[in-house]
Amino acid sequence: MDADRINEAIVTGIGETGIPRVDRQRLIDLYGESEGSVLAERVVAMVQEAVAMPIEWGDMTLAEGVNNIMGRFSQLHPELSPEALQEIGRCVGWNLR
């Protein structure tokens, strides 16, 4: 799947949610049942991958911990845009808090 499409789906699927989450229905509404479902699963999988990353907290704050995780996640996924990483980071922060 095209990196631009994934980035767009991440920003669109998470970006307008008050509580950070993947809005599957929004993706289906925008891209149609078939493509929207595939994109939703891909975005959910990426968020789950980021949330599951291990971290040594030490004396890090929540924000520092999220930045640590997202820095490592961005190295694993260099195709992701800064905007997409920010939206995934919102989900990571919400899950860690």
Rank of each mutant, 00 (worst) to 15 (best):
M46V: 06
E49A: 15
A40D: 04
Y31R: 07
G18I: 11
G32A: 09
V51T: 14
L39K: 01
L30A: 12
P20H: 12
E56F: 09
D23S: 09
Q25W: 01
R21P: 06
R24V: 07
A52I: 08
A40S: 15
P54T: 12
V51L: 11
R24K: 12
G32K: 05
L39N: 00
Q25A: 09
I55Y: 06
A50C: 13
R21H: 12
S37E: 10
V44D: 13
M46I: 10
W57L: 14
V22W: 03
R24G: 00
T12Q: 07
L27S: 02
E41I: 02
A40K: 04
M53K: 02
V47A: 09
E35V: 09
G58P: 00
Q48D: 15
M46R: 09
T12D: 00
A52D: 15
L30P: 06
D29V: 11
Q48G: 15
A40L: 03
A50I: 07
A45F: 07
L39I: 06
S34M: 10
D23W: 07
R42S: 09
G18D: 01
G13Y: 06
V38P: 01
E56Y: 10
P54Q: 10
E16Q: 12
L30N: 05
Y31W: 01
I55M: 15
T17F: 06
E16T: 13
W57C: 10
T17S: 10
A52S: 15
R21W: 02
L30E: 11
G32R: 03
S34E: 14
E49Q: 10
Q25R: 09
W57V: 15
L27C: 02
P20V: 07
V43Q: 02
T17R: 05
V51Y: 03
R24T: 08
S34I: 08
R26L: 13
G32N: 04
G32V: 04
L39Q: 03
S34V: 12
E41W: 09
Y31G: 08
V44R: 08
V22F: 02
W57R: 15
A40G: 13
G13A: 03
V44G: 04
G58C: 02
P20W: 09
G32H: 07
E16C: 11
E56N: 13
I14G: 06
Q25S: 08
Y31H: 13
I19T: 15
G18M: 08
R26M: 08
T12A: 06
R26V: 10
R26F: 04
G13P: 05
G15N: 05
V51M: 08
E35H: 07
R21M: 12
L39D: 00
G32W: 04
E49S: 15
W57F: 13
I55D: 03
R21G: 05
I14C: 07
E35N: 07
L30I: 10
V47R: 03
V22K: 01
W57T: 14
D29R: 13
T12G: 01
V44E: 14
V22C: 02
P20D: 12
L30M: 10
S34K: 14
S34L: 11
T12H: 05
R21D: 10
V38G: 06
G15T: 00
E33D: 07
